[in-house]
Design a protein around this nucleic acid. Structure first.
Lengths: 255, 255
DNA sequence: GAGCGTGTTCGGGATTTTCGAACGGGATTC
DNA sequence: GAATCCCGTTCGAAAATCCCGAACACGCTC
């Protein structure tokens, strides 16, 4: 049979396996027929994969519906705990939230996307747990921009090539040159702002987390624009962020 | 080729895929050769699977080492947030920790094992995050026993058949009959104790979480024996646990 | 009780996984 | 500084295996 565009070395059956996993996630649980039709593969094929997944605890069957299993949660917790910055970053987020009363985040990056690793809600009523673990574009996220600013130019370019610069609001940076200019400025001032570039009315500030001269992640504080003015961000909140990164540096140095 | 003992319907290639994933986890990151030798399969086969996994963000390559990727964390957070009891259970754990000053947990079960879903450390210095997400036997865990007590007898038997009753300390229940007797008692009194049955010097109390008459999980409070006396567990702490479950019942009823 | 909708099983054909050997690059060693 | 080792990666070919479609079993509704 003919080959796909850039494929040939991967394992096709693994591909369909995770197509199934993701489809179950998209549908919040699904049946065999539903999955087979949605992915356009035979019912028996889907059934085979589900059987293997079930034996391993990666999928559970409730009635006639298959759902993702808590084995994924076990893997996920393991992966998070393996991050160098996790321990100290978590501690920093807890304190940032207490000091500022605003939503605080520990963020890292992988494959050109920013990932929310740990967060606390602040006085907001937003549910931290629906955000936790999600992957977002880096160019409309204060932490993401702080990370981008400390990545090699070629890698930034590669990331933009791969993921593009989609707009979220009318303030989102969608122009390559403007992004590069802002990254330059972020490097100089040591922090990144997000002025309603992701969600209308939400502003944030983020600072990079460096370990041994390499960017490992970012800390950020976010909140409604009326409380998170540019002045407050660059004053009080930046001071807290700087104190937090200093302490993380110290912790990781004496590891 | 000949067939395995009870296999035949699963997908073999999926099986090796997750063998690789688990081996990477066991080794905290590994190279291709290392994995191939450890699992006794060809290097090129391992490489093929890793390529697919990498394309999907499930695995990342740092230097010559492959590590599990944060995509697993994304899946894991999703699975946890899907649990019916998660929202209200998390809230309850936060309050239990504040009220008692002891380590508090939300636990659920899947495939006959207890899983730590959410926890807070209390005044202890134990790291909650290394426990979070792990799966443990139910018979030496206060929450696990509370869950077992409300499962159908046949399922309890199935679970014991599958996972056995391994000892952790000399107080661990390793006898079927003694377990059944204690489960009966737990059903009557409405709570389960753990008196150094898991770790020497650690005691705990757990209560079941029922939704629509079906067991969904448990809440537990644990701490060092000198603070977590049987009297304190069955008095003050049980009161807090009862208040917490009442509130969860209310929340889930008005859903 | 017939009909529809599930999930599940089965066998055979063909795609694809698997293997082993060869390739290329980086570090270490003599 | 060159040769060697060890690693990850690529390649081609044999056959084991995955995939398909049809048939089966089961529960529900009409």
């Amino acid at each position: 049979m003919e080959q796909g565009p850039n494929e040939g070395r991967g394992i096709k059956s693994d591909e369909t396996l995770f197509d199934i996993v993701e489809h179950i996630q998209d549908l919040d649980g699904a049946g065999v027929t539903e999955l087979a039709e949605g992915l356009d593969i035979a019912k028996s094929t889907v059934h085979g994969h589900l059987t293997t997944l079930r034996d391993r605890g990666l999928v559970v069957k409730r009635g006639q519906q298959y759902h993702l299993g808590l084995k994924f949660f076990e893997y996920g917790q393991y992966v998070r705990s393996q991050l160098d910055i996790f321990q100290s970053g978590m501690f920093a987020v807890d304190r940032l939230e207490a000091e500022t009363g605003e939503m605080s985040w520990l963020i890292t990056h992988q494959n050109g996307k920013a990932i929310y690793v740990y967060g606390r809600g602040g006085d907001n009523d937003i549910d931290v747990n629906t955000i936790l673990g999600t992957q977002v574009h880096m160019h409309f996220n204060s932490g993401g921009k702080a990370i981008l600013a400390h990545l090699p130019d070629e890698e930034v370019e590669r990331i933009v090539d791969e993921h593009g610069l989609p707009a979220r609001t009318e303030n989102t940076i969608t122009d390559r040159e403007r992004l590069y200019d802002e990254l330059e400025q972020i490097r100089e001032q040591g922090y990144a702002l997000n002025l309603s570039e992701d969600l209308e009315g939400i502003q944030a500030i983020g600072v990079p987390l460096m370990v041994n001269g390499e960017i490992q992640g970012a800390l950020s504080v976010a909140g409604p624009a009326h409380r998170m003015s540019k002045e407050r961000c660059e004053g009080e909140i930046l001071d807290h962020l700087r104190a937090a990164t200093d302490e993380i540096d110290l912790t990781l140095a004496y590891r």
